[in-house]
């Protein structure tokens, strides 16, 4: 099983060249701003890169399967975690120069981590009352269901349980459309003109590298003159989420969602998915 790393140079070379080509095309297209009513829809190179990756994914386009074999796509999975690291480092470097402003915003930065529980406020009622889902609703709505949250559900219920199915569903959907949602949402919320741009920035740190990139990219495009502050606050908040996310899920979000489900979901509701 360990051969996919060192063993075959061929598939790895093909993969990296494909990525290089996708990156170059995406950066050539560049940022596109589509003005609509209350704000602007911002299209970013990271979105094209992801979309192009999906288009050329051998599971989608059979023709590329001949050059991008199983070893290559398996390596691609490993490369995601590696490739996000220089980005995370670059992001961290935006914090140092702004450290005084970060400390000044400290209370807001720490308390807004609790705001991640907002998913329960919005997604749980939709899942249980509107869509009449069963225990899938617990796994689906208790958190943003990225890797640490998924690991927690796997540990507690197993991924073959209803809760696991709900979490896996949101994980897979988030993987497919999360970058797009997080690129579109902040400029539109900013367009409402209600919220402090610092609040919009520090909320971008939800614990996923690609969502962080999309969210800050969209926000910086909407408010370019606050770029340095936006990046620094988002980076600081993302670190806090890395450090606290798992524990917030374990001790707050999951018990709260469980309790809500026991309290208000009809007792006879079984698994309702498909």
């Amino acid at each position: 099983m360990a051969t996919s790393r060192g063993g075959a140079i061929g598939p790895a070379l093909v993969l990296h060249l494909a990525v290089l080509a996708i990156v170059v095309v995406s950066e050539i297209i560049g940022l596109i701003r589509v003005p609509i009513g209350i704000g602007a829809v911002i299209l970013l190179p990271i979105l094209y890169a992801f979309a192009l990756g999906i288009i050329f994914n051998p599971n989608v386009l059979k023709a590329t399967g001949r050059v991008l074999n199983h070893d290559a796509t398996k390596l691609a999975g490993t490369m995601i975690t590696i490739a996000i690291m220089p980005f995370i480092a670059r992001f961290g470097t935006t914090v140092g120069p702004q450290i005084e402003k970060i400390i000044a915003a400290g209370p807001a930065l720490i308390l807004q981590e609790l705001g991640n529980l907002g998913t329960i406020l919005i997604a749980f009622p939709v899942a249980v009352f509107l869509l009449r889902m069963g225990r899938e609703a617990i796994g689906a709505s208790y958190s943003i269901d990225r890797e640490p949250n998924l690991a927690l559900i796997a540990d507690k219920y197993g991924l073959n349980s209803p809760e696991g199915a709900g979490a896996m569903g949101v994980y897979a959907t988030g993987t497919l459309i999360g970058t797009f949602v997080f690129a579109l949402m902040p400029p539109l919320v900013h367009g409402l003109g209600i919220f402090d741009v610092r609040a919009l920035a520090m909320s971008c740190g939800v614990g996923s590298g690609s969502m962080l990139a999309a969210c800050t990219g969209g926000l910086v495009a909407a408010v370019p003159d606050q770029k340095d502050l936006i990046l620094a606050l988002a980076a600081a908040s993302n670190i806090l989420t890395y450090a606290t996310g798992l524990y917030a899920g374990l001790f707050l979000a999951l018990p709260l969602t469980e309790w809500l489900y026991r309290t208000c979901a009809p007792a006879d509701r079984a698994s309702t998915m498909h």
């Binding site: 993969l15 990525v19 890169a49 990756g53 999906i54 994914n57 991008l68 490369m79 995601i80 490739a83």
Partner: peptide, 12 residues
Amino acid sequence: ATPALAYAGLAL
């Protein structure tokens, strides 16, 4: 971040 997203699309 662009390379990471390209890998992510290909890795699905």
